[in-house]
Computed example of a mutant assay.
Amino acid sequence: MMGSSPMSQSVEMSAAAVLFDLDGVLVFSSASVHRSWTAWAHSHGIDPVAVLAAASGTRSVDTIRQVAPHLDAEAEATRLEAGQALDTSDVTAGPGAAALLESLAQHEWAIVTSGSEPLARARLRAAGLPEPKVFVTAEQVSAGKPDPAGYLLAAGLLGAPPQRCVVIEDAAAGIAAGRSAGMRVIGLGGGESEHLAEADVVAGACADLEVLREPGRGLIIRTTEGDV
């Protein structure tokens, strides 16, 4: 939808693999995220609004380095995410997430998350969603989103060319990472969200996406409704 007025229509993208962000795409964990970061910010005398804005789509360690460079970011992030991994009572699967994953073979999808491995696995379990064969977490990359390293690593592990991958994201940092990796990006959230402006296509949720297979085209991701 870059540089043009969005209009609602069905869009198809052929792909070798689909690379999912986790939080805000496959699982909804915003309440837990808000609680933990707000408590952390208050404990350090930092404005929680600024912290939550910085935390959107990025690794905890990178957020802490940005908002509190005087702290030991790695130690703080480890403690923060350990608490989040225990706070999953209201973590749920995103609309349509389970059905969308069921329509993909293991070699056709991966998760690329800014969360740590223990936290990501805890949220998947809480949401009742399957774990992927390829699971790229914060510990596996030297630079987090918006750096493309995570998405490029996932594509390589799946054996899929970056230009044949479709990224599904909800945050500006993740959308930027996918585009920097040379991949096409579906932004989830819909509406007039400015942070989705750099996505190739915008849809409301996983429920608005379906997987098709056609001879000669392979895997097809179709948006049943969305903006381009």
Score class of each variant (00 low, 15 high):
A77Q: 09
S56W: 12
A77R: 06
D87G: 04
G83M: 06
S32A: 15
T78G: 05
S30F: 13
S89R: 10
L100H: 08
S32F: 05
A75Q: 13
E108L: 05
E108P: 11
Q84D: 13
L71C: 07
D90W: 00
S30E: 13
A41N: 05
A53I: 08
E81C: 03
E81Y: 01
D23F: 01
E81M: 03
D23M: 01
A82S: 14
P95F: 02
E74I: 04
T88E: 06
G24R: 02
H42S: 15
S30M: 14
A41P: 02
S43G: 09
L104S: 10
S30Y: 11
V67I: 12
A97E: 07
E74F: 05
G24Y: 06
L80W: 05
V91K: 03
G94R: 10
H44D: 01
V91C: 03
L104H: 14
W40F: 02
T58Q: 13
S32D: 15
A82Y: 07
D72H: 03
L80C: 06
R79V: 04
D87H: 03
T78R: 12
A98E: 08
H107R: 15
A50L: 13
A98Y: 07
A41D: 00
P69Q: 14
I64R: 09
T63K: 04
V49R: 13
V27I: 10
D47H: 00
A50W: 05
T58E: 11
F28A: 09
S103A: 13
D47K: 02
R79S: 00
D47R: 01
A50E: 12
H42N: 15
V91I: 10
L100M: 14
V91Y: 04
L26Y: 10
Q84Y: 03
A105R: 15
L104W: 14
G45E: 08
A97F: 00
H42I: 14
A98W: 06
L71A: 15
S103P: 05
T63V: 15
T63I: 01
R59H: 00
F28V: 12
V25L: 08
T78V: 10
I46E: 06
A73I: 01
G57D: 12
F28Q: 08
G57T: 08
R65Q: 08
T38H: 02
D72V: 05
A85G: 08
V67N: 09
L80G: 03
V27T: 12
V33F: 09
A54F: 04
L104N: 11
E102R: 12
V91R: 06
E108T: 11
A75R: 09
A50Q: 13
H44V: 09
A105M: 13
I64Q: 07
D23P: 06
V61G: 06
P48W: 03
A82N: 13
A93N: 04
P69I: 12
A41V: 04
L101R: 09
W40C: 07
S43V: 01
Q106R: 14
S36A: 15
P95M: 01
G24F: 04
G45P: 03
E74H: 14
D87N: 07
A77G: 11
G45M: 07
A99E: 11
G24M: 02
A54R: 13
A82I: 08
A53N: 00
G94F: 09
D47E: 12
S32P: 04
S89I: 10
G96M: 04
